[in-house]
Design a protein around this nucleic acid. Structure first.
Length: 271
DNA sequence: CACGGATCCTGATGGC
DNA sequence: TGCCATCAGGATCCGT
């Protein structure tokens, strides 16, 4: 589910309510992608100072360290004072004085990892090589064009890699390339400066709009209050194979790139 | 190093 | 309670 907009929508839905809370207990379910990396008692009594986001990671700043949370493919969170009983796919409960933050993740590609205050390496390993934030000051059109230079891979797969810019996943990769008029199979190195500028702007606009719409709910994504997103209703090409392009009415095409589905309009998007 | 593919896991869907 | 293949919003690891 979660690309940058869904992660940001999740963050916005509980960050203000958990700030200042004291951790009272932690309940673990089945193993997630990585081990938590600490004993549970190390978390107890710590306070949640604030909730930040880096790429698709949620970062809970604790009194003495950092809790990194990732939603993987199928994760979602809920937050409240009286959540339902722990279910089959609830794998992490952070019980605090202000409510319980719960990670629900059927496929368990998600993760919760603790990085102690003295432990720079843990966070560095997960966050150290991420590209720039698309909605931040550091996302510059010229630098973005530079990042495409020398990359032989298809632009869609480069976007997914998170090396040039973070947060663009499989839905929004197809969407931003449609808005920029660029064929997903185009080699990144062949994209001119003006077209890179179009793509840069499309990334900013599509992601910001998706956050405003509450993200995309294809199957079961919801924010920490259980509310679904609505961006998918206005997707231009994603999951629209064979349907008429919303601009030119030609049928939307679908291909596989790196074992992921890509959607595009062969008329509106040029190689 | 850059690239492409396999891989982790569970559930939904559709063809037979 | 049919069985099997395929696909699903991510990201790491491994071979070339």
């Amino acid at each position: 589910m979660p690309e940058l907009p869904e992660v940001e929508v999740t963050r916005l839905s509980f960050a203000g309510r958990i700030a200042g809370a004291r951790i009272e207990s932690v309940v673990l379910g089945k193993p997630l992608r990585w081990p938590l990396g600490c004993e549970l008692h190390q978390l107890l009594g710590q306070h949640v100072l604030q909730v930040r986001r880096r790429g698709k990671y949620l970062l809970l700043d604790l009194s003495q360290g950092l809790l990194l949370m990732h939603l993987g493919m199928s994760g979602s969170m809920s937050f409240g004072m009286s959540l339902p009983a722990v279910g089959k796919h609830d794998h992490f409960d952070l019980v605090t004085t202000l409510g319980t933050l719960r990670l629900h993740d059927p496929r368990r590609f998600g993760a919760v990892v603790y990085a102690g205050a003295e432990d720079e390496a843990v966070a560095q390993k997960l966050l150290g090589r991420l590209g720039v934030e698309p909605l931040g000051e550091g996302f510059d059109a010229l630098l973005f064009h530079q990042a495409l230079k020398g990359r032989k891979t298809a632009i869609k797969q480069l976007l997914l890699s998170g090396q040039a810019v973070v947060g663009v996943g499989n839905i929004y990769a197809s969407e931003v390339l449609f808005m920029a008029g660029i064929r997903p199979t185009t080699k990144a190195s062949l994209i001119s400066k003006p077209r890179a500028a179009l793509l840069h702007r499309a990334i900013q606009q599509v992601l910001a709009n998706a956050v405003a719409k509450g993200g995309s709910t294809l199957r079961d994504f919801s924010n920490a209050d259980g509310e679904a997103g609505h961006f998918q209703l206005e997707a231009m090409v994603y999951d629209r194979a064979g349907l008429p392009c919303r601009v030119c009415a030609a049928p939307v095409k679908t291909i596989r790139q790196g074992q992921r589905s890509t959607f595009y309009c062969a008329t509106c998007q040029k190689p």
